[in-house]
Amino acid sequence: MRRAVCPGSYDPATNGHLDIIERASQLFDEVVVAVLVNKKKQGLFSIDERLEMLREVTAKLPNVRVDSWHGLLVDYCRQNGIVAIAKGLRSVSDFDYELQMAQMNRELSGVETLLMSNNPAYSFLSSSLVKEVATYGGDVAQMVPPLVHKRLMERLPGTE
Rank of each mutant, 00 (worst) to 15 (best):
H149E: 11
E107D: 15
L114H: 10
S91T: 12
P120S: 11
R90A: 08
G138T: 01
G137H: 05
V148D: 03
F124G: 09
Q103C: 11
N119A: 10
A102M: 05
V148L: 05
P120H: 06
D139G: 06
E98T: 06
T113K: 08
D94F: 02
L108R: 07
T113D: 03
P146I: 04
L99G: 07
G110K: 13
V130A: 06
A121P: 12
G138W: 00
S109R: 04
L99S: 06
V130E: 01
V148W: 02
S123R: 13
D96Y: 06
L115M: 15
D94I: 03
L115C: 12
S91E: 07
E112H: 14
Q103P: 08
S128Y: 08
S126C: 09
M104T: 14
M143L: 14
V92F: 09
G138S: 02
Q142I: 04
V148R: 04
E107V: 11
N119V: 08
H149G: 06
Y136E: 00
R106K: 13
L99H: 12
L125Q: 10
V140T: 02
M101K: 12
L129S: 12
E132R: 14
R106I: 00
S93L: 05
N118I: 13
L114C: 09
Q103T: 13
G138M: 01
S128G: 15
Q103K: 07
G138H: 03
D94R: 05
V130S: 08
N119F: 12
L99A: 14
R106G: 08
N118M: 14
D96V: 06
L147Q: 03
V111G: 11
S128V: 05
S123T: 12
Q100R: 11
Q100T: 11
N105H: 13
A141R: 11
N119I: 03
S93H: 13
S127C: 14
L147W: 03
K150W: 00
E107R: 15
V92Y: 12
L125P: 08
S126K: 10
R106E: 09
P120E: 06
K150S: 07
N105W: 08
R106F: 12
A141N: 12
Y97Q: 01
A134W: 01
G138R: 02
A102F: 05
Y122I: 07
L125N: 11
M143Q: 06
M143F: 15
V140H: 01
Y122K: 14
K150F: 00
